[in-house]
Amino acid sequence: MTRRSLLSRLAGLWIVPVVLVLWELATRFAEQPYFPSPSSIAVRIQELWFSGPLSRVLLTDDAIDAFAPSLGRLFAGWILASLAGILLGVAIGRSAKLADYLDPMLQFGRAIPPPLLVPIFFALFQIGTATQLAIIVFGVIWPVLLNTADGCRTVDRQYLETARVFGFTRTDVLWRVVLPAATPKIFAGLRLSLSLALILMVVSELIGSTSGIGYGLLTAQQNFLFVDVWAYIVLLGVLGFLLNASFLLLEGRILAWHHRARRTI
């Protein structure tokens, strides 16, 4: 990231306090219990999750009980889906025959909203972690799979001919030509999947779970704790933002050649 883009990014943040002030004013005038003020939400977030001991970065027991299982599910689901998606995507992208066979099924599977499959997953795996992971994996595998397949299918012909002329082995062609050439597209898919994984993590915890952020959100709602509900909503938003930002940081490192090569052409 260049210095200039960092500065201009920071400069763009002026909108955040403006929105917060407007939000605060609106909720104070409205005096609606369903819409607590952001300041009260912030206080509640601090009470709920960030008033713990310094040795645990202020995290309370509640925070650890809520975040740990949720983040665990989110990452486990995302990583499983990514591995499976990349594996299948490479196979489909490198074999036109396989792509022809599987395409109708993939389009069929992709079109199904994952929450609709919840009853089937319950029947298959019973209530518990397996079902929750199945929901996340089924929901987030598609962007990785389809992007990987596309990336592997559209490798520049000249890259492949160079590899053939110099007699690269099949393994070298895959690991040193096809996969690197496809990484920009694979990463675009991974990033989309990560944001989807957050949503599906919550969905999976709303149904048949006794821990996690989604479960906490549901309990707060059923107990009419509106400030708590909002605290969970804000927490999810911040979590999504942080996940995306860390992913972009990682991508910037791994795909430096891609971003910089594109800038010079």
Partner: peptide, 11 residues
């Protein structure tokens, strides 16, 4: 090859 930009691997 003629097209060096696509014959060398940018990564």
């Amino acid at each position: 090859f003629q097209d060096y930009s696509r014959s060398l691997y940018p990564w």
